[in-house]
């Protein structure tokens, strides 16, 4: 288990995504099979690269549907990457850890 992945709610998401640096958000739900498969992959990448300038979090869309609506997400798992309050990339669906890590680290 990692303690690198922050469980986001509406307030903490709003606060973190406007901050300087990178914020990576994974949107998931309990009933989504591929989301469950992605969990260990995401946690592993967070263990490798997350720090105070690269925050990795996740949103349970059942608990906080407003975040999914705000981001225009219509499929999960989705990973959205923000930099200094702006979306710079997003990826829908499962991907292996090395590719996810590359996607996040790429400017």
């Amino acid at each position: 288990m990692t303690d690198q992945v922050i469980k986001l709610n509406t307030e903490s998401f709003e606060e973190l995504y406007q901050k300087e640096g990178k914020l990576v958000v994974r949107l998931w739900a309990e009933w989504c099979g591929p989301c469950k498969m992605m969990s260990p992959i995401y946690n592993q990448v967070a263990d490798n690269i997350a720090d105070e300038k690269l925050i990795m979090g996740e949103v349970d869309i059942d608990a906080f549907p407003a975040i999914a609506t705000k981001l225009g997400v219509r499929g999960i798992p989705t990973v959205v990457i923000f930099e200094n309050g702006k979306e710079v990339n997003r990826s829908v669906g499962l991907m292996p850890a090395p590719e996810l890590q590359k996607l996040i680290l790429k400017e």
Binding site: C32, P34, I61, V73, R74, G75, V92, G93
Partner: peptide, 17 residues
């Protein structure tokens, strides 16, 4: 439009519709 309305998994993404 993959992930923005195009999906291959109704049980994953049906929720949004």
């Amino acid at each position: 439009f993959k992930g923005k309305g195009v999906s291959a998994c109704a049980t994953c993404d049906g929720y949004f519709y």
